[in-house]
Simulated assay, not measured.
Amino acid sequence: MDMMRFNDFYLRLYKGDAKQDGPAILEDFYTLWREAENSGVDAESLREEAKGVLQRIVAKDLFLLAACEWIGTKGHFKLGKALAHEVSVHYLQQPELLKFALSETTEECATTVARRLCALDVPVAVSLGWALSMSEDLPPSQLIASTIAKVTNFLATEHPATCKRLLESKSSPFADSQVAQQIAERLATELNALEALPQLVELQMSSEMRRSFRYLRRSENRAVTEQAQGESFLADMFMLSEHFKYSNQVALEHQNDQQTVETIIPMFTQEMSVELPQTWIADPLLYGHMVMNLWKEAGQ
């Protein structure tokens, strides 16, 4: 199969109208993906070739339509996983919950996608936002209520800190949602109960462990920097690195028309953190079984 067809498809997606041509574009892309799979293209190469198209789908607000079609209706796990990866990259540091317009989505499709988004480990801002959007946009039913309870309980159990932070955001689109308020109250109650437990000195990190932890973080940061510089063909030609190991600010001098000016620039690190699922930390095999059941149960 000619993999350059994905590049042609990207140009078509770039020039096309997402609202008018969206369904046809997604259907043609699904056909192209299946053709590549049937021709023997390995999964990693296929994801790499389709990466640009999937990124464009997420950026052009076609995720809702793609999720309903590929994850909900067709239930294609590999394509859904590739789409979920690009969504996770795009919304990794999303500061608030996402609101989805699900009023035109069928009940079966919306509930199926809600469960499978949890199975695909998309960011909590996406999966919890989808569940709360169902509670507001779709008419109440037993299926909707059970799915919302299942998804919100899973997310609140596996990602309590992230759920609490997103629900307490002042700009949250679900500030008036009764379901969101109930989840926030539950998390606050659980946190208070956890803080009321006695603190065991035996479980606290010793000074040696803290030093080792800081050393591991520095080593990891250094390894990431070295890898990035090694893979950049422009690094040796245009970049000059100066490392200040024990400094927290840099003094620079530059000459203007009248005098020499000294500028102090503070140094800081840029970090991000992601809360890992609680069950995965304790028992990865059990967590894998749980998310597999979420995917299978959604199709029943």
Rank of each mutant, 00 (worst) to 15 (best):
V89G: 08
A84D: 02
A110I: 13
F77H: 08
Q20A: 09
R34P: 04
T112D: 02
H90A: 14
T31P: 01
I71E: 02
F77I: 00
W70F: 09
E49W: 13
S39L: 12
F29Y: 05
E107Y: 04
L46D: 08
S39R: 06
L26M: 08
Q94Y: 11
A24T: 05
G52Q: 14
L120Y: 01
L64M: 11
A18Q: 00
L32T: 08
H76L: 11
E86V: 11
H85L: 13
R115Q: 15
A24Y: 01
L64W: 06
D21V: 04
G52F: 00
T31V: 05
T112G: 11
G40F: 12
E44M: 13
D61A: 13
P23L: 10
I25N: 00
H85P: 00
G52E: 04
T112V: 01
G72T: 04
L13T: 02
P23G: 06
T73I: 15
C68K: 05
L32Y: 02
F9W: 07
E37T: 11
V89P: 01
N38Q: 13
L11R: 02
D8A: 08
V53P: 04
P23C: 10
A24F: 04
V41I: 14
Y91K: 10
G40N: 10
K99P: 07
A119P: 03
L46V: 09
A82C: 10
T73F: 11
A101H: 12
L102F: 12
V89F: 06
R34K: 09
A101T: 07
A59W: 05
T31F: 02
A59F: 04
